[in-house]
Design a protein around this nucleic acid. Structure first.
Lengths: 333, 333
DNA sequence: CTGTTAGCGCCTTCAA
DNA sequence: TTGAAGGCGCTAACAG
């Protein structure tokens, strides 16, 4: 009858409180809450009930401390310089992760990973606050450098490896579909402005392009860009310079396609009359350009969600998951 | 001489290790590491040296457990529905926070806060994993509902209150500058497509608009939008319908301005010849539209950085900080 | 199936 | 200025 009142009114229910209320030991309460070990249906109910009554929620810090499990999902973007962090795609990945991890009491950190990453990866591997790592735009070298202690809690958005599951859009298929459309609408002198060679995500679209040209008996005309608007401009200019009779341009990103469109507009070239332009990504503004950009979708949020789900579940997943891209026909091609 | 080797080679240095190496007690080591209590210069050096040698880094979980300090910065976006989370601005805020908090071992969570928020805010206040809260797009009602236990670790991007520091762009000033430019270039029948009334960030630009019109002895022509491209289109259409002689439109966001531009293009209206269009935000695509959009900058990353810095420092900051906006003159106005 | 015991790594009174 | 001791909330062996 004599309540102690030793705790302030704002006290947050602790496992001890739940155990006491349910008339069991802390361990037992812990087991049913964590969902682990054995427990009779009766006790289970009592504990659950008590927990509900008290509005109990486990303290993640305490749990992390004892289990060694971390509480931060680190989004590690691979690149030559930290500038790679300033990118709308990265933002979308981080945002998706931050909202999906919230219910698990896991926060998200964003950092740059230099191309010669090993030391940083090892630091993450032994950092007790790190729950898991989401690699973005990674390379084979980085994948190979992933320490054993990190395996099972690393996934990649982009290329994967036997050890590190990869989640990516089917950009090879997207490129093929786009090129097929260009070909089917009568284009025969098709150029491509590619992404940077060092990025693995550039390879498949380029291969698709080369394969399509070869299959059609057409010469390849490709120019390297870096996914930016500026490189789309210079790339387009170079294409016009080297192959003046070009009648279609496939850009590896919408940003580059928009840059190309700008150059064409400045020079009074009719799109798609004289030259068709297609991009890749379907960014929000693709629908607003003049002419509206034909492009293929890139379901970044979906991909990120898949990767994060795998990380939170901690379960084994297939080494590679490809997300479908859909061709969106607008005015430019 | 007899080393125990009781710990695996991969063992991470602990405070105990540091203390032992420095020949002091844990408490002493703790004090100098945390930078708190007293310590003689000599011991301080020894501890620091030992920590460096061992590559010691405190375990945030242990620290959080004992201090009650959380380890997640929660970005809480206020709105009618969870859809408010899918927004490029939110993405940029989250991303900035995620990269700034990383060095502090603090992760970022993203969540929606309904307009009648009190219960959620209280939950956050007593959640031991929550380090601090960054309110986005908040309202006065939400600000008033912030629990006392959260004060000192909440800031707002947008409106603030005496209790909750606000960080925002000077959108009133931006609107004034834009309208001045419109007026100075001879426009006299200037309409505005505003943001939604319920959003506090809509108020100042609207006030600036009304003030400018009043000062110039011009009638106000305003239509309500919701910051989206679609509402820019309908808003523009409505303006043309109600005031066919309009010669300039000021949109509260670039997205709306771009929507307006699309309508004008479809109807063959010359921009800026017949109607000048100005936006606000200076999104990346603003430079690429045809005609290129005249708009005012919105330094989202800077604002977010300011807010996050305040949160991480935990120190008192002025109740309101306004970030300057700069008018970017392009072709549309 | 359940309770007891022993920490996880750190901070923080308290004495010395 | 320093050290000893206790405990934050939880899980994970162990006994029973």
């Amino acid at each position: 009858m004599i309540a102690h009142m030793s705790r302030p009114a704002t006290h947050r229910a602790t496992l001890d409180d739940v155990a006491r209320a349910a008339g069991v030991s802390r361990s037992t309460a812990s087991r049913v809450i964590a969902g682990y070990g054995p427990a009779s249906a009766a006790t289970r109910d009592r504990v659950v009930e008590a927990a509900g009554q008290l509005g109990y929620a486990p303290n993640p810090a305490a749990r992390a401390l004892v289990t060694g499990t971390g509480f931060r999902l680190v989004v590690a973007v691979v690149g030559a310089t930290p500038d790679v962090l300033h990118d709308p795609y990265v933002d979308r990945v981080v945002s998706t992760a931050a909202s999906m991890c919230a219910p698990h009491d896991v926060g998200v950190s964003l950092r740059w990973l230099s191309l010669n990453a090993p030391s940083d990866l090892y630091a993450m591997a032994s950092d007790p606050s790190v729950h898991s790592v989401l690699l973005v735009n990674t390379t084979q070298a980085v994948l190979d450098a992933v320490p054993a202690r990190l395996l099972g809690r690393v996934v990649s958005i982009g290329v994967g490896s036997p050890q590190v599951p990869g989640f990516d859009v089917d950009n090879g298929g997207a490129a093929a579909a786009t090129l097929a459309h260009l070909y089917d609408s009568g284009r025969r002198r098709i150029a491509m402005v590619t992404g940077p060679q060092w990025m693995p995500c550039t390879h498949r679209p380029v291969e698709s392009y080369l394969a399509a040209m070869r299959a059609a008996g057409l010469p390849a005309r490709s120019v390297e860009g870096d996914f930016t608007v500026a490189s789309g401009r210079t790339g387009m200019a170079e294409v016009l310079h080297r192959w003046p009779d070009t009648d279609a341009v496939f850009a590896g990103s919408d940003a580059m396609a928009l840059g190309a469109l700008a150059v064409l507009r400045e020079r009074g070239v009719d799109v798609p009359g004289d030259i068709a332009v297609a991009g890749f990504d379907d960014v929000p503004f693709a629908a607003l350009s003049a002419p509206a950009l034909t492009t293929a979708t890139h379901p970044v949020e979906e991909i990120a969600a898949g990767a994060v789900t795998a990380l939170m579940a901690g379960s084994r997943v297939p080494p590679a998951t490809a997300y479908a891209s859909r061709l969106v026909l607008r005015e430019s091609a």
